[in-house]
Amino acid sequence: MAGKSVDRFRAALMQRRLTDTIVTLDASARTADDAAAALGCATGAIVKSLVFSGPGAQPLLVLGTGDGRVDEARVGERVGGPVALGDARFVRDAAGYAIGGVPPFGHNQDLPTLIDRRLERYATIWAAAGTPETVFSMTLTDLIRATGGEVVEVG
């Protein structure tokens, strides 16, 4: 299954005309700290793809920094109603990937996306590429273009 998830994400990269920078790590990158240690980068340069249940139980993607927290109240104010972090089933249904491997795009459906302004600190950012063992790099500009997301304060 892991191979299929990565292949599906690779197709999403190609569809957006982005360079395939997918790397398979020797160890799981299920947490931002794990990924940063494996890549030798700052934890903040790791993009956390968090799927929330928003107003009306609609899925919402928040792309946060690996070293930052997402303030659910602030996100709720931004989207016009309360939000809650989705459970494993909600995430899988909305995104098509398991928690720990959710990439920032290439999901089962288009997800409204908020991008943490704190990612502006990094020239290169890293995100999951379909599994907890795979990541890819890109610029914030490419992330914004690929997701159609809005850069906002989420912390």
Rank of each mutant, 00 (worst) to 15 (best):
M1N: 02
A2V: 03
G3V: 06
G3D: 10
V6K: 03
D7R: 11
D7N: 14
R8F: 03
R8H: 09
R10Q: 13
A12S: 15
A12R: 01
T19H: 04
T19W: 00
D20F: 03
V23E: 07
T24S: 12
T24L: 06
L25Y: 00
L25R: 02
D26I: 05
D26V: 09
A27Q: 14
A29P: 01
T31V: 12
D33Y: 00
A37T: 02
A38Y: 00
C41S: 08
C41R: 05
C41E: 04
A42M: 04
A45C: 12
A45T: 05
S49R: 07
S49A: 15
L50I: 13
L50Q: 06
V51R: 10
V51F: 07
G54D: 13
G54P: 07
A57Q: 13
Q58G: 14
P59F: 02
P59R: 09
L61D: 09
T65S: 15
G66E: 07
G66S: 13
G66N: 09
D67N: 14
G68S: 14
V75S: 03
V75P: 01
E77N: 15
V83R: 05
A84G: 14
A84C: 14
L85Y: 00
G86C: 11
A88E: 09
R89F: 09
V91A: 15
V91P: 06
A94I: 06
A94C: 14
Y97F: 11
G100I: 09
G101T: 08
P103I: 10
P104V: 06
F105A: 15
F105W: 06
N108G: 13
D110R: 11
L111H: 04
D116R: 02
R117N: 06
R118T: 14
R118F: 04
E120C: 14
Y122N: 04
T124P: 01
A127P: 01
A128M: 08
P132H: 11
F136G: 12
T139N: 07
T139F: 00
R145A: 15
A146C: 08
G148D: 07
G149A: 13
G149K: 04
E150K: 14
V151G: 13
V152M: 04
E153D: 13
V154A: 07
